[in-house]
Amino acid sequence: MRPFQYDRARTLTDAVQITQGEDAMAIAGGTNLLDLMKLQVETPGKLADINRVGLGEIADTDGGGLRIGALATNTATAVHPRVRADYPVLSRAILAGATQQLRNKATTGGNLCQRTRCYYFMNIDQPCNKREPGSGCGALDGIAKLHAVLGASGECIATYPGDMAVALSALDASVEITGSDGMERTIPVRDFHCLPGDTPWRDNVLEPGEIITAVTLPAPVGGTQLYRKVRERSSYAFALVSVAAIVEMQDGVFTRADLSFGGLAHKPWHDPRIAQALVGNAPSAQLFDRAADILLEEAQGHGENDFKIPLARRTLHAVLEQASENAA
């Protein structure tokens, strides 16, 4: 760990000011950042502790939705009565992630900013374009079991590891951001994370000095809400593939099918064409295959992670079968 300056922000304005410098970072739960600092994957010169700036509230919005403060813990969000009643996919996704101890500390904003678990990113004695631009991608010809099959680039095949954001993507939630000039902006979760392209060091659209203040959920959509996470062990493991699904049926056909996927890409993966293909049709194995064809149209494995392609197809089948049974 390198020496760093620690400042405790009292207000959001404080926090924004402190984190403006190039080597400044905000710290909340620290469940990811502290590990990365110990490994010197992250070496901030300045940390702004934002835990006391008062962003922990979970409150109803005027439009009937829910606003989850950036500092609300994963545990608080997962057990919140309105989340459980109206957005069960979110509760389920959060509870599928990490461990109880980690969820008690992890926050909404921090979780969105969680960095990849790529082995080569985590080891500073190995090449990684994300950590050290231009050094190469260690995973590309290395051990790539965890890695992306969608939207990867020759520069980086890392995945976004989180679960919560996959559910937020299916729910079409928005991220509220406050910037250095006090300007606020709101962007859809679906647009928050970036694909690696030729800027793999960029995980998301946050600019220096920008801080996530909240995530807002639209008015409840009802339906059957599932989160399915496939993994080798049944807890404390990142997804091989995960699916967040919000499905409604009427008269035997899908009327809603909002699906997002984890474990496949550098971001929670959402493809609106899948819903278009499903809605208006009756569930069938053929239909599920068509949805999987769309999802996996451009999927590309890297040897060790080739299995994710059939696994994603099969998991999509499992989720749609279960959801259509529940919804019918």
Binding site: R117, Y120, G138, I143, E232, R233, S234, S235
Partner: peptide
């Protein structure tokens, strides 16, 4: 079901070198 050391094919280093990625069974398993 879960435990496997993975070695880089180019330099032989052990890649999954922490308890998050070397999967010993958890209580739920």
């Amino acid at each position: 079901l879960t435990e496997a050391l993975e070695f880089d094919p180019r330099d032989g280093h052990l890649v999954n070198c922490d308890l998050a990625e070397y999967h010993v069974p958890v209580n739920r398993d």
